[in-house]
């Protein structure tokens, strides 16, 4: 498979702060990679280097084989960027923003106009097309930003915390838009603080902390490594707890434990197949069940397990490495 994004030993120094300390990434074309990490981990710095906005101090980075420093202009023809902070022009309307990007990406006038209309429609912003982004809500602005990064139909798309501050509906709409892009073969690099978002969109995940990659793999692998999901089963009658345990064991599922105090059975699940088996086992046992849900480890829990420490606030490296 072709490599769309590759970084080798990427280093970035800000004063005496080493923001990136040898970051290696490899994103196959047409896939979604999620960069996960706490504040100050270096996610935005990686994105900015890959978007030709910041020069690396060491190592190299290529996009579709083009060096981000020496062949920046070629890279810019391939990429779309939705930065962490809105990069829309507050003083011209939403439509004008998209038309401007269209003209700057060399679309003919008529095509640029049509593309602006099209994207506003797609993101439900048609009614606000003529308004200034100043009057937009945070979510609307975020969507306009994403729309602006899609005008040129980029082959590689960077999304830096695209859904921070979005309500669930907007978030789903944005996820759907990203999936639609991926379906057309676009490669996506997505940074996020939410494990859930990584799971919803990404083929693979890279966890960063203090400017380094500390873990990489598919979401399933990662989840398995940090204990995976946990299934909570709450039978209607507390007396059935042991029965539930037996039903699960009977289906070949190990590791379930009984929490009489909470009135539920906990079972770690390593993959989606195990979940199906568990539900099947419960169904055939015909025990009345009041509640069943899966628990995804939060980013905090992932970090706790991967670094053995609390996620670091930006800057206090010593605390984590200690």
């Amino acid at each position: 498979m072709d490599t769309a994004i590759e970084t080798v030993g990427l280093v970035k120094q800000f004063g005496d702060k080493r923001a990136l300390d040898g970051v290696d990434l490899k994103v196959p074309a047409g896939t979604v990679l999620s960069l996960l990490g706490p504040n100050g981990a270096g996610k935005t710095t990686v994105v900015r280097i890959l978007a030709t906005l910041t020069r690396p101090d060491g190592g190299r980075a290529t996009v579709c084989g083009n060096d981000v420093v020496r062949e920046a202009d070629l890279v810019r023809r391939l990429i779309g960027l939705t930065g962490q902070y809105a990069s829309v022009d507050e003083n011209i309307s939403g439509w004008e923003n998209l038309y401007l990007v269209g003209r700057l990406t060399d679309l003919p006038r008529r095509r640029a106009r049509a593309r602006a209309d099209e994207l506003l429609e797609q993101f439900g912003l048609t009614a606000a097309a003529k308004q200034l982004p100043r009057s937009y809500s945070g979510g609307m602005r975020r969507k306009l930003d994403l729309a602006a990064s899609l005008v040129g139909e980029p082959r590689v798309l960077y999304l830096d915390e695209p859904t921070t501050g979005l309500d669930p509906r907007s978030r789903n709409a944005l996820w759907a838009a990203v999936r639609a892009r991926v379906a057309t073969g676009t490669t996506v690099l997505l940074t996020t603080q939410y494990m859930e978002e990584a799971e919803a969109l990404a083929d693979s995940v890279v966890v960063m902390d203090n400017g380094r990659v500390i873990e990489a793999g598919t979401t399933d692998q990662l989840r398995a490594r940090v204990g995976g999901k946990v299934l909570h089963i709450r039978p209607t009658r507390a007396a059935d707890l042991a029965q539930v345990l037996r039903a699960l064991a009977g289906a070949g599922l190990a590791g379930a434990s009984l929490d009489a105090g909470a009135g539920l059975v906990r079972m770690p699940i390593a993959g989606d197949a195990e979940l199906t088996t568990a539900v099947g086992a419960l169904a055939s046992s015909a025990l009345p069940i009041a509640g069943i849900d899966t628990h995804v480890p939060s980013l905090d829990e992932v970090f706790l397990s991967l670094t053995g420490a609390q996620p670091a606030g930006s800057g206090d490296a010593a605390q984590v490495r200690a």
Partner: peptide, 17 residues
Amino acid sequence: GSGVMDRFRSLPIARSA
């Protein structure tokens, strides 16, 4: 001072435009 510059600078346009 605003983010607009990031947008411009990530586009394949001449720096002086």
